[in-house]
Structure formats: C-alpha cells, structure tokens
Design a protein around this nucleic acid. Structure first.
Ligand SMILES: [Zn+2]
Ligand SMILES: [Zn+2]
Ligand SMILES: [Zn+2]
Ligand SMILES: [Zn+2]
Lengths: 172, 172
DNA sequence: ACTTGACCTGTTATGATATTACATTCATAT
DNA sequence: ATATGAATGTAATATCATAACAGGTCAAGT
C-alpha cells in the first residue's frame, strides 16, 4: 500500500524530467487540466488572465520575470501594468500552481500541481531551465540542525544552482 | 583526530547562538579580528568602507538592506550613492565575510568567517534575527535527489523562515 | 428585476532594489 | 616621480514590486 501522506496526494509524485526530452505538449496540457481541477475543487476562479499567465509559464521549463509575463499579457490584450501580472502570479503561487524563484526574482509553473510536495529547485546556470526536486529529506536534515537552537522552521526555500545534463555535456 | 576538511578550517565550527543571549561585543570584535586575518592572508584590502560596512552588519544578528547600510555609511561621511554600499557588500560576500539573504534582499555578517562552512539560514519571521546552521547534511540529501536527474549542483541557497525561541515563547 | 457585496481587473503613481558608466583618488611598485 | 591597477564617488538609469483607487463582473438574496 502506497500510504499517501496527504488527502490531496492521491497520485504519487511523478518525476517531471524538465532536463530530459519529453512530450512537453502533453506536459503542458496535463498541468492545465490539473490546475483546473485544483481550482475548481477549492472553489477558486481560474480567470482568463490567470489561466493565460499559467500557460505562459508552462511554455518552457524556465523562470520568467513578472515583467516578461506582463509583456506577453499585453500583446494578448490584457492590461499592461505591473499589478496585472503580479496579481495573477500571486494567485498561482498562493494556490500551488506556480513557484517563485528567489534567486532569479522570477516565477515558474509548478510541475506537480495538486500533489503534496515540498519543492527544491534545480536551476541550470547556463540554460536557466528549472526543475523541481523533493525537498523533504533536505528539510528533515535542516530540522535536525535547527531543533537544538530552538528554532521552529515553518517554510523553507531551497534553490540549487548548477549544470543540467545537457549543458554539462555541451561544456565537456 | 579531528580531521579538518579545509586548510582554512583550523578551528571547529563553533555554533554562534544568534538566538540566545551571548557576549555580543566579543562576538563582534572576534568577527572583525577574523575578517582582518582572512583578508590579510588572502592579500585583500579591508578598506575603511568595507570594514565599516562589516561593522554595521555585525551590530545585530539581522539582515540589512543595501540602502539601510548606505544610509549608515552616508552619516559616517562615506559616499551616499548605491554603488558605494553594493560594492562593499559584494566584496564581503565574495570573500565569505557576509552573506546575502535572498528572501529579504538583504545582507548579514557571517558568523563563521574563515571557517569552511556551507550556511543555511534560519530567519525569524517576527524579529528578523538570522542565524546560520550547517547546510552540509541538507546538501547531501539534495545531491542524492539531483544525481538521478543528471544535475550537478554547484551552489545552494537554503533559507528557512520560522520562529526563533524567544519569539516562540513570546507568542505562546 | 433590483440591490448588494465580494471579487476581479485596469490604471496611475510611487517605492524599493540594483547596475552601468565614467571621473577621481589612492596604494603600490617600479 | 611616475606609471599602474584598485578602490571610491557620483550621476544616471534599469529592474523589480506595491499602494491606492476606479470601474466592471457575477452570483446571492430580496
Ligand atoms: Zn514539460
Ligand atoms: Zn542547462
Ligand atoms: Zn553576536
Ligand atoms: Zn524572533
């Protein structure tokens, strides 16, 4: 028995090989479908702007700045002022459909929407591709380090910079 | 035998209890002394601005924004344009005398200058105190997660938000 | 049908963070 | 003393983010 840790975690955490070749059209469509399911289940509204922002983020496994997103929105006929982008991004992040990458001041679509997961991010310094890895083991290690100091961890940010397999091969 | 992992790591990594009461005057003086040793050994120049910035960061175990530092510098008669602060901060970070806290767009003095250490940061959401914990175990866990994806981690950012013991007691 | 109220979108304006480019000064080594 | 590179000062600008308010949409309750 797979013992899911969370009611929302009916499916196992499937690795999304952002670095590897994959059927990205399916990857994108699937993420959108899940996003609709997640929002509907929570009584939230995946409005046109929000949905379009998610689509934009999903186009590539990279992180986009809010102003990059905004420029895309503007050409689509949506508003072209910063809050339009920031609000949609905030909504997506708040409900687990996107993540903020602190090191890049940028945003990326979640590759596991609807699944319970604590993401750590692997960011290629050459091609800027972002992949999600499971942060739970690292978090456990940190809890161990924090406990003797009396510090209670609530949220954690883990971002690893490095080289993805493709760029590693290219530079070799 | 203690087997130091690094030539520069003659002393063991002493925990600096940023959250606990401690002789902070000594804490500060010691950090400055170490900073002088580190820079001298590397043939670097701990100039007045750089030293002053380090002193400012050392005053409290909190992170300061570049403009906060800049304001302090200006009242001390140094330049009052952003690059003055950013350059000194960059120097300190580059040589391990300070760290950048990504989540806060801010900087904090290193509490283990001259020691080999991979810092993870524990940031109290209430009082903004920042402590360093050892990130090596968490990093090992991450390497394990990244390896099957073919991703090679080079640098890692780990920042935990939570409650320090003092604020935890206060809110209870 | 009408009103209400919550939520969403658009816009203006501003604030906060960070860098580029260039001029000047300082430390050091011929 | 003089050439060199490093460090600092300054102006201008780029980039990232939010506050405040106005109008629009939509569904619930009357
Ligand atoms: Zn994909
Ligand atoms: Zn890459
Ligand atoms: Zn101290
Ligand atoms: Zn605290």
């Amino acid at each position: 028995m797979p013992t899911p840790q969370n009611p929302a975690d009916a499916t196992a955490m499937m690795p999304v090989p952002a670095f590897a070749a994959h059927d990205h059209a399916h990857c994108t469509a699937d993420a959108l479908t899940r996003a609709e399911a997640v929002t509907a289940a929570a009584g939230l509204r995946l409005t046109p702007v929000r949905r379009r922002v998610l689509e934009i983020l999903l186009e590539e496994h990279r992180a986009l700045g809010a102003y990059d997103v905004l420029a895309r929105l503007a050409t689509d006929g949506f508003g072209n002022q910063p809050p339009v982008a920031y609000r949609a991004l905030e909504f997506l992040v708040e409900h687990g459909l996107a993540h903020r990458i602190q090191r890049l001041n940028a945003f990326t679509a979640c590759t596991h929407p609807g699944e319970a997961h604590a993401p750590a991010f692997l960011i290629c310094r050459t091609c800027a591709t972002v992949a999600e890895a499971e942060a739970a083991p690292a978090r456990a290690a940190l809890d161990t380090a924090a406990a003797p100091l009396g510090f209670v961890i609530e949220r954690i940010t883990i971002e690893a910079m490095g080289l993805c397999p493709k760029c590693r091969d290219a530079s070799a």
